[in-house]
Write a protein that binds this DNA or RNA. Sequence first.
DNA 1: CGCGCATCTTTACGATGTCAAGTTTTGCCG
DNA 2: CGGCAAAACTTGACATCGTAAAGATGCGCG
Lengths: 216, 216
Amino acid sequence: MTKPKPPPQSRSSKPPYHHGDLRRALVSAGLAIVGSEGIEALSLRAVARRAEVSHSAPYHHFQDKAELLAAVAAAGFEQLVAAIDAQAAESQARTALDALRAVGRGYLRFAVGHPAIFRLMFRPELTRPAEHPVLVAAEALAFGKLLQTVAMCQQTGELPGHDPLPPSAACWSIVHGLAMLKVEQVLGETPLGGIPFEQLVAAVVETVIAGVRARP
Amino acid sequence: MTKPKPPPQSRSSKPPYHHGDLRRALVSAGLAIVGSEGIEALSLRAVARRAEVSHSAPYHHFQDKAELLAAVAAAGFEQLVAAIDAQAAESQARTALDALRAVGRGYLRFAVGHPAIFRLMFRPELTRPAEHPVLVAAEALAFGKLLQTVAMCQQTGELPGHDPLPPSAACWSIVHGLAMLKVEQVLGETPLGGIPFEQLVAAVVETVIAGVRARP
DNA sequence: CGCGCATCTTTACGATGTCAAGTTTTGCCG
DNA sequence: CGGCAAAACTTGACATCGTAAAGATGCGCG
């Protein structure tokens, strides 16, 4: 079990209030539930239960369920960015194109490694009745990583063009599509389910790279 | 166990039972609700209400909510196949590659034209606690369309290779990914939201075609 | 030291999915 | 043609959910 982090902002060196920062406890309870029991078990009351508070305690830290889930999803985006960085480091990317491959592979590795959180992250009706700034920021960070890598490829001449947006759209789409089909278990219902997933990843990543390299 | 319920007397001579085939009425009520009010309004009771029956009448035609939604989703897959065919006809595809482009464009057109049904179709937790044969069949039909078109491209030499699966995976992934990012309104939160969607469609479709053509 | 307010609990309400009993209609068999 | 079993549908109930309102509790500032 993860122990509570050191006390938050206002006072140092002692648990701030009643519970001792419930907000963080709720978010990690949410992460734990979604990770172990999946999205459908992720109810406001279940989160409160796991944090050992009453079912309406969360309302003093989040406006509603969506805002809590948005915080959980934002944590997911941070993990995603970390997974991408880890993949880049691990793969020892030497060229910008290799870095781009690592972004795609890291994205997919995160998706299959944490399918439930990944699904939550792309379920706006659960997290976004209103745009929650934490989520938007975390999301922008993740997409920025891709944009940046593509731009780097263009600067080194490994990819054509000057506008990183169109190639980024293609890369994101293909990787996100494969991830979705996988985590939603659609692949298993088709002939593609017979192919080892690693092989699909390779095929898809190399295909999109070939595509963005070929386009004028 | 399985009730032998072939819809036998679909002749107009006699209304079958009490209500006069509720099953179909429920499915189209579901389609209507999801189309007009979205996925979150799609409750068992709401469907029953719109069909003007009691809240538990559906249980005589479907084992549970998931089975009803599976039937609605299956209807969605049929519409998707129709949309793809319509796009192929409309685009006057003359080469196999053009037909492949039409599949992608039809898929995307359906997704943006019927976002709510599209989302339902790819939400297994709503439709698939158990695999419902109607859904699996409808889905296989849709994927078969893609496989078939890719195979045709390979036969005419417009695409390399003999196994249609890998290129199909790439095509489906990229188109599905863009569709998902669009209907889940993720695109709008990124710089890609500033680009006209038609332009993204063109970029993505042409990129994947360039990719599958280039790969050995 | 006491008051205010943020934190948390209790209680309550409407909506949902599902089940167990009833009720009405249908089709069939004698 | 009459009656009966079962199918189709309704009613009522239950647990769970999200949310709101009102009550309890303890921290910290004046």
